[in-house]
């Protein structure tokens, strides 16, 4: 039971500022879409949340039910994973020379997840039966769709409360994109996961999102009130078509 609050976040690489005053709220149990075309800062924000990039201003916090606040702003990537945040990175970033099963097992490196390794492995194989068939195969030798399944499965192995999914549709055939997005939507419902999904495929993303943000040049250009607002607001269409 966790809610992600990002307030007035600035971040970048060296002297280049990418994110400018970004404020986002991902409520517990919801799937929130972070929409925007390439190069607008979606992945930078994802990396900030996972601690791979340190923000220059602003804050990133996890709020728990009981009022506990976990400040992730200056936390290490390890501490952030331990806090229950997992990411499916852009480009999947699998370990190509390890087997499917070894990739999944590495996902359970977090101490809290080691005890439930077997259960989580079963869950990943049930979610994606394809991975069960290929569990002894090297990850790098699989098709793009299978690799994306593995990337999602691997992130789930750490038993996360908050799942970050960065561009799950990249490099996939349209039919697979639709299946993958549906799968992520189901995940949110069946596991009660809180999900922040960065996506440039607006039409697919808004199918499963409870609400959404549009990010343009590192700034939040639009924040929807709810799912209906995201699907129907003309602003979304303008940004999507305009981009």
């Amino acid at each position: 039971m966790v809610e992600l609050f990002i307030k007035n976040l600035n971040a970048g690489y060296g002297a280049v500022t990418v994110l400018n005053d970004v404020t986002i709220d991902v409520p517990n149990g919801q799937t929130v879409a972070l929409l925007g075309t390439n190069g607008n800062g979606k992945s930078t924000l994802m990396r900030c949340i996972s601690g791979l990039i340190k923000p220059t201003a602003g804050s990133i916090e996890l709020h728990e039910d009981d009022g506990t606040v976990i400040d992730l702003t200056a936390a290490t990537p390890q501490e952030i994973v331990e806090a229950g945040v997992a990411q499916v990175p852009e480009g999947r970033r699998l370990f190509p020379d390890l087997t499917v099963e070894e990739n999944l097992t590495l996902g359970a490196y977090r101490k809290a997840a080691r005890a439930t390794l077997a259960t989580n492995l079963d869950y990943a194989f049930t979610l994606f039966p394809r991975l069960a068939e290929r569990k002894t195969q090297l990850a790098g030798s699989m098709s793009g769709g299978e690799q994306q399944m593995l990337a999602v499965g691997r992130a789930l192995m750490s038993d996360p409360r908050l799942l970050l999914v960065d561009e799950p549709s990249v490099g996939l055939a349209p039919i697979l994109v639709s299946q993958m997005i549906t799968k992520i939507g189901e995940l949110g419902e069946s596991r009660g996961l809180t999900i922040l999904m960065a996506e440039q495929n607006f039409n697919q993303a808004i199918r499963i999102a409870d609400k959404g943000y549009i990010i343009v040049h590192g700034e939040i250009a639009f924040a929807s009130k709810d799912a209906a607002d995201l699907r129907e607001n003309d602003m979304v269409k303008t940004y999507y078509l305009g981009a």
């Binding site: 601690g51 791979l52 997992a86 990175p89 970033r93």
Partner: peptide
């Protein structure tokens, strides 16, 4: 980088 995302240093 992927290893960092698994909570490994």
């Amino acid at each position: 980088m992927a290893l960092r995302l698994m909570g490994v240093d």
